[in-house]
Amino acid sequence: MFKNIVFTIITIGFCIKGNAQTVSAEVKEERNIYEKIYDAPLNVAGKQQLSLHELYNEKPLLLALVFTRCSGVCNPFLLQLKENLQFRTKDNSFNVLVLSFDPRDSIKDMNLLAKKFDLENNKQWFFAVTDSITKLNQSISFNPVWDSVINQYDHDALLVGINSEGYITKKLIGIRRGHDMDLLIASVNNVFSPTYRLPSKNLLFSCFNYDPKTGKNKLGLGLIFIALPAVLTVLMLIFISYFVKHKRPEIEETS
């Protein structure tokens, strides 16, 4: 019995290990937190020239960095972002800025991109280019590298949370789960969560997953293990009581 349990657990352990993603984004994501983002002048599709601060002062921002000629991660990244945010936009607590980091991109290119994702009329989404992309990249430690062989940028799929004072509150690298998105949205709205988990850890028996949407912790598989001893005890109590019942004598009644 005991051996079986151990074996099962070990087998599950192996499976999890096999699936574990090897993100090394841990460090990059921690850079520049609570630093001010560079206040770049923007050319926003369908709008006049304005500064980044005018956008974030109005509402906290999620900043996504892409380039239109990307044949890699940018498209799935934006698609996923759109899908992720579909059900999170009701509270209307933030805007999304999709900014090109490729100097070749024009405002027209960005307009086309918006159309492609059916977002050109969505008031929450802005598509923009800037002529100070280097300074902006520096302020968020974003380093796209031009690869002349494939004629593409080698870059991270980066999402930056900016609160209404222009501080970087959180960064997400790679296409991430909805849960991380919730943490990001909470952070730009200055909702403090006293803890978070490191992205590279993928553990089977975690007790709780913080849900910033509700501000509560969702129960994890590990919680079963905390409750297990008490449940086992109660079950055993009932079980034993049932089996010794016939042996129970009539207790003399006290008057």
């Binding site: 657990i9 070990i10 352990g13 553990l203 028996f205 293990f225 001893p229």
Partner: peptide, 28 residues
């Protein structure tokens, strides 16, 4: 609480004998 100790020890043994392939959650 003795059952809790059993669960705890099983998780310890699992990590020990899997030679690091199975990793526990420190909070749990």
């Amino acid at each position: 609480c003795l059952f809790a100790a059993v669960v705890l020890l099983v998780l310890f043994y699992a990590e020990y004998f899997s030679k690091g392939n199975f990793v526990n959650d420190a909070l749990l």
